[in-house]
Design a protein around this nucleic acid. Structure first.
Length: 843
RNA sequence: GCGGGUGUGGCGGAAUGGUAGACGCCGGGGACUUAAAAUCCCCUGAGCUUUGCUCGUGCGGGUUCGAGUCCCGCCACCCGCACCA
């Protein structure tokens, strides 16, 4: 080896081709090795990959390559979440077909991913927009229907009257359609739903077993499912009606001083029918924002209906208000308000001068203690509550439920926040819902042998509305039951359905069914799933639901598809801008040159303002293009950068200086390998024990770091070992260290590692090499450094034999000149000895 | 407002209750070179009366022989949200 430079432009493609030719990363379902399924969330084919993808897929890749080296049969697939609105937007804006646009994007992005040298099994690639995928999804949808997990009901949508289309929430801006600017209407449509609520309890319980999921994600899902238990009972109203309310604090029932209903509650509507004031108030409630933050800070408002509600125990007449803080779609849309023990009720009661009785106190003798400006939601004993007095909160709640149930006036009830999943989308670019509307037979599933029901290609997006509805022939078919003329369902499925089972199809892709039970059992669950926190709730909950639902119908036997979940941080970059006509104009990093602590625009040399480091986004122009970076530094430098420095769960600030440093390190490593190749021919002898120990330590530590996904730490250790090897004189140990270093860096810098492996004269691919073995004897240190402290402050460090007895360490420490100077003759009162660590002298 | 998280040099960050700042970036100095680039070596938390000492992990307390780490109370920022009765 005489060539002293490493050229990624020629080396990267060479090794990528070598892996392809050898089908190195093809997963064998029949392998006897232990399996490992490593999966990253598959991308939406938007057109180009971004740094977030690079970071996500590099993490998974390092793990996949490492797992291969440690003797696992690894499944590491890739595919495309290929249905969705951006393709239809492109169709409308650019006049291209969504399918053509999507497939071109896939081609391009696949090329980009290949440039990064990912160890992917491309033979299992799938795109959800292909009939080979969505046809099976249609079959699954029919299966779920037959199992009673699919139904239709009326539901409200955002309707854009100009574009004649349904809008997603994110497409409604200030109540107007994002494209047309038209006032959005609420329309009721019959839509398809999946019965996720049947699995609410299971999905909640299952979270407890997902120990390798972030607590944060589990908590978010728990809150989303939102189980609460309480009491539902009815008040008798002064107008003769009954008003059912739901409460989670039945124990505080004697503290109820008013009753409140939501603005769209039937009672409110009834009052509004002949009261202009009520109508005005209801309109006002609807004007305010509906987010939690808005509502929380908004003033509590109420409208006294004049109706009263008879308290079920005290018999008191409580006023009934319409209140802006009561939600119609939770519980019964009406509450008993207990101001003493609920902060919202407290604020309301204070504002409208309603009584605030105390019914829970720390002890019985504090029954009349005043409130200190806020409600008390804590534990205690019941007071001022008749037959409940003296009881603990939990016991009182049970007693109230028992009594009301015995009297047939109410019942304990569990209420969930989780609602059924609406999967209908009135769009073209999605999986056609495999149902047929027949005038005679009603809505019937398509025959399984008629699947896939494919999308028509001859559509145009110049006319408003869903092309499937407008298409001259597509929807016309015959009824599978009676054979008569019938129409296809023109709704398509939510794209979250596509991503709810793709990980199954990766593991097993028979032609005649969605997946094979045995093969699924072989590969699932996914050992490590990696993706963004933005999918913490919906995607991950839906995927868990689908696994359960498909298990429920006997297709697979997987309750939890993802054994371990990791959510990586975002890739960020500082922003560059100038104020122009009172607005900020942003510039891309490529247009800007950093100058020490400032930055100037390349074009005019004038300064630009350096803004906050935030997530890369097109609108702020703080993006760097992976292709440009790969072209300049090579794939390995980019991979190394996204693994370095920042812990993977935190944000990664991209910087030009940082990637340059990584590029330098790649070449530095190469020089080490290349020089060694030149030197080794003499056959170097001799051992270097310190280096041997360092290698052994590093091999173990890097393995631990990779398994913990602590890539930044693994990187630091490789830096350290590199420096140590560079500084060490020629020896057999050094030769061994260099081969080891190649193996250690192989998961992270696979191209360089292959090139070096080859140059060192090793056979085959380093991708197929095992993880380096370690002699356990080398991990045992025989000398340790002891810290010598005086009153907890470091005064000296000493070397001592490992395992030295306490008195020996104490004597050694007391012999330290530096310590004695610090002691300055003071009386030693106590000596703390921590074996192999430190001696602390207390005076 | 509620829930969760984070806070350590100029920057990204290390650190089972036991030597704070590993490793990288930036910066400074030097070597090599006609010169530059590349590369290599050294320095790089602050302060001071500099063989060394003092201070220092958002702020204020506490526990401990010893606290970045544990406890209590604050502050700032980030993320999530559904007034869930």
């Amino acid at each position: 080896m005489t060539d002293n430079s490493f050229d990624p432009a020629t080396s990267d493609p060479r090794w990528q081709a070598a892996w392809d030719d050898a089908q190195t990363f093809r997963a064998d379902s029949n392998s006897p090795k232990p399996k490992s399924y490593v999966l990253e969330m598959f991308p939406y084919p938007s057109g180009r990959i971004h740094m977030g993808h690079v970071r996500n897929y590099t993490m998974g890749d390092v793990l996949a390559r490492y797992k291969r080296m440690t003797g696992h049969e690894v499944l590491h697939p890739m595919g495309w979440d290929a249905f969705g609105m951006p393709a239809e937007n492109a169709a409308m804006e650019q006049g291209v077909h969504p399918g053509g646009w999507t497939r071109a994007n896939i081609d391009h992005m696949k090329t980009q991913l290949k440039r990064l040298g990912f160890a992917l099994d491309w033979s299992r690639e799938l795109a959800t927009c292909e009939p080979e995928y969505y046809g099976h999804e249609q079959a699954l949808f029919i299966d779920l229907y037959e199992a009673g997990l699919v139904y239709r009901k009326e539901s409200e949508v955002n309707w854009d009257p100009v574009d004649m289309t349904v809008l997603a929430n994110e497409q409604v801006i200030d109540g107007k359609g994002w494209r047309s600017g038209a006032e959005v209407e609420k329309r009721k449509l019959a839509q398809w739903f999946l019965k996720i609520t049947d699995f609410a309890e299971e999905l909640l319980d299952g979270l407890g077993k997902l120990e390798d999921w972030p607590d944060k994600v589990r908590l978010m899902q728990e809150n989303w499912i939102g189980k609460s238990s309480g009491l539902e009972f009815s008040f008798d109203l002064s107008n003769g009606d009954k008003l059912p309310v739901y409460t989670t604090r039945p124990d505080t029932i004697f503290g109820a001083s008013f009753v409140a209903v939501a603005a769209d509650h039937p009672v409110a509507q009834g009052v509004a029918a002949d009261s202009q004031a009520a109508r005005d108030f209801i309109a006002e409630c609807k004007r305010g924002g509906t987010t939690a933050a808005e509502l929380d800070t908004a003033e509590k408002l109420g409208f006294d209906t004049g109706i009263t509600a008879r308290h079920p125990f005290s018999g008191a007449d409580l006023p009934v208000f319409i209140a802006n803080f009561v939600l119609m779609d939770y519980g019964t849309g009406a509450i008993m308000a207990v101001p003493g023990h609920d902060q919202r009720d407290f604020e309301f009661a204070t504002k409208y001068a309603l009584p605030i009785p105390r019914v829970v106190a720390a002890s019985a003798d504090e029954a009349d203690k005043a409130f200190t400006g806020e409600a008390e939601a804590g534990e205690g004993v019941l007071v001022n509550s008749g037959f409940l007095d003296g009881m603990a909160v939990d016991d009182a709640a049970r007693e109230i439920i028992r009594r009301l149930e015995a009297e047939g006036r109410g019942a304990g009830k569990t209420v969930w926040r989780l609602r059924d999943w609406g999967v209908s989308r009135q769009r073209y670019w999605g999986t056609p819902i495999p149902f047929i509307h027949c005038e005679k037979c009603g809505v019937v599933p398509a025959a399984k042998d008629s699947l896939p029901i494919t999308l028509p290609d001859d559509v145009d997006f110049r006319t408003p509305g869903n092309p499937l509805v407008r298409h001259p022939t597509w929807k016309h078919t015959s009824c599978p039951e009676c054979g008569g003329a019938a129409e296809r369902e023109t709704d398509t499925l939510d794209t979250f359905v596509n991503s709810s089972w793709y990980f199954l199809r990766f593991a097993s892709q028979p032609a005649d069914q969605p997946c094979d039970r045995e093969e699924i059992a072989k590969w699932l669950p996914v050992e490590q799933y990696i993706g963004g926190i933005e999918h913490a709730i919906l995607h991950l909950l839906y995927a868990r639901f689908w696994s359960r639902a498909l298990s429920h119908i006997g297709l697979i036997d997987v309750q939890e598809p993802f054994a371990s979940l990791f959510t990586q941080g975002m890739v960020t970059h500082e922003t560059y801008s100038r104020a122009q006509d009172g607005r900020a104009v942003f510039y891309t990093p490529a247009e800007v040159k950093r100058t020490g602590d400032g930055a100037v625009l390349q074009d005019d040399g004038e300064p630009v303002e350096i803004g906050r480091v935030i997530k890369m986004s097109k609108s702020k122009k703080n993006v760097v293009d992976p292709d440009t970076i790969i072209a300049r530094y090579g794939a390995d430098a980019v991979r190394w950068f996204v693994l370095s420095d920042s812990p993977p769960e935190r944000d990664l600030p991209w910087s030009e200086a940082g990637i340059e440093g990584c590029g330098r390190f790649v070449h530095r490593l190469w020089r080490l390998f290349a020089q060694h190749g030149a030197n080794v021919q003499g056959g170097v002898q001799g051992a270097d024990e310190a280096l041997d120990r360092h290698i052994a330590r590093t091999v173990v530590a890097v393995a631990e770091d990779i398994e913990a996904l602590a890539f930044n730490k693994a990187v630091a250790r490789i830096y350290e070992l590199t420096s140590a090897v560079e500084k060490s004189p020629a020896s057999a140990s050094r030769s061994a260290a260099i081969a080891t270093l190649v193996q250690l860096s192989a998961p992270m810098m696979p191209h360089l590692a292959e090139e070096a492996w080859h140059a060192l004269g090793q056979d085959g691919l380093v991708a197929d090499a095992p993880w380096p073995a370690v002699d356990p004897a080398l991990l045992v240190e025989d000398e340790v450094t002891i810290a010598v402290q005086h009153r907890g402050k470091l005064r000296d460090t000493l070397t001592a034999p490992k395992g030295a007895p306490k008195d020996q360490l104490e004597a050694l420490a007391l012999g330290s000149e530096k310590l004695q100077r610090s002691l300055d003759g003071a009386e030693v009162r106590k000596v703390i000895v921590v074996p192999d660590r430190l001696v602390n002298i207390v005076t």
